[in-house]
Design a protein around this nucleic acid. Sequence first.
RNA 1: CGGGGCGUGGCUCAGCCUGGUAGAGCGCAAGGUUUGGGACCUUGAUGUCGCGGGUUCAAAUCCCGCCGCCCCGACCA
Length: 521
Amino acid sequence: MSNPQNQKQQPATAADGITPRATDYGQWYLDIVKRADLADHSSVRGCMVIKPHGYAIWEKLQRELDDRFKATGHVNAYFPLFIPLSFLAKEEEHAAGFAKECAVVTHYRLKSIDGKVTVDPESKLEEPLVVRPTSETIIWAQYKNWIQSYRDLPLLINQWANVVRWEMRTRLFLRTAEFLWQEGHTAHATEAEAREEVSRMLAVYADVAEHVMGVPVVRGHKTEGERFAGAIDTQCIEGMMQDGKALQMGTSHYLGQNFAKSADVKFLNQTGQLEYVHATSWGVSTRLVGALIMTHSDDNGLILPPKLAPIQVVIVPIYKTPEEQARTTAEAQAVASELRAQGLAVKVDDREGLQPGAKYYEWERKGVPVRIEVGPKDLEKGSLCVVRRFVLEQEGESEQDLRKRKKQFLPRAEAIAGMPALMDALQKELLARARAMREKKTRVIDTLADFEAFFKGEGGGFAWVHWAGTHADEDEMAKRYETSIRCIPFADQIPEAARGAGTCILTGRPSAQRVLMAKSY
RNA sequence: CGGGGCGUGGCUCAGCCUGGUAGAGCGCAAGGUUUGGGACCUUGAUGUCGCGGGUUCAAAUCCCGCCGCCCCGACCA
């Protein structure tokens, strides 16, 4: 201890096997994913296994999104996993954009040669099939048959599916070779209508991010360089993770008539003329689960917003004797059913042979928002011990005081009746906490010196800067500071202190408004 | 694709340099004592040491080849 130079840097892991954020944020993230039982590395390169707890979160997120898609007039359908190579090749820019990360099926049969199962060389496909990296091309090939008249428009379809992008480097949830997502693909008679759809769906994403996930986002347009391959306009929502890095959480694209032209999708308008339709596509993926983790969780494990928690309340009976066990367990079940009657997802942890403390740690690690302890004393007093997964931090507070603040002994009826309100409060607190974190790491910056100090000295975050550079200038910024333009924000997304015109931080050229720069995942 | 690391019970790893009966901790199973913040004792089960070849009386260990995964870069939701 007195001679740090001779000491190997021990990975400062908590007793729970979770590396503290301050030690290594990347490792912390992986530890949370594993210790909260969300996902595993699979034996397939770059692919993950989503475990039941992680999948349950995704299912809740799906439900929230799907309800909103339906409410905005969309319906679900399903298109093939395989895309003939020639389909993908039709839209040139699109094909080029995905060319370097495609899995390709070239054979359709196996054969046993000398006792070894191998690909039968004689089963070569005439045309290779690409495993979809996204479905625009296969969907538009179909839309050609579905659209003839303006009466067929708008066509508003969503697909829940898996896609494959052969990424070089992967991280659980954030970037995997195969991932789950939804992709909306719509066709419209006019540009205005299509652009409206693009904005509408981005708004849906922003709503889910903020009010379901509790993750504040900035909405804006991507720059030309970051645009979806084949799109005319790409809009996005960008969230900030606890390490100050930006994460793209969803995109919505105006595709113009590019895909209609390459798939030859025309319709007869009201005046009897043939026109190409206008297209949009929009998507969010299991990456959102990664965003959820990285925004809210702490060194003790996962923290989930109530709206996405597969288990919202866990009840732990406490006892010494078999007689107490019977009584507290019965009370736990009774409380559980009363809470369920209010629409809450409740679990009674009546496993034997585990001490209560062990259960507390486990459910905290897994992010359950509220725990109720039911002991003999509670039975006597008619009370319940209600413990929140988190409280808003206070400077310099001891671990013990923090624990005390999380814990409340309430009259039974009050605890039960107040639970929905508590869930609501926790949901809002998470968003507020994430907002505060983001504000703390956001700067309005006017000079390169300040920019450098922010990203190289302070650890970085969101920087509002004026920009009028070229694509090459963007690359220069990336090379120097590892930053990129996350988006050109909508006017109402720019904080007041950052509004107005100015001069480009790099080139000095005049700039009408600021852009959002950050390091990103 | 370039650089690095690692493959040994379910998990984390020791053993390899210097070849000689395959180990520890955790987990798991059974029984008992425990249980308001991570229990303990006793007993027990679990391994083609990544794969293939070579050297040797003898290979987890030495040599050659292969495969896989992880981390760091270039690519991306």
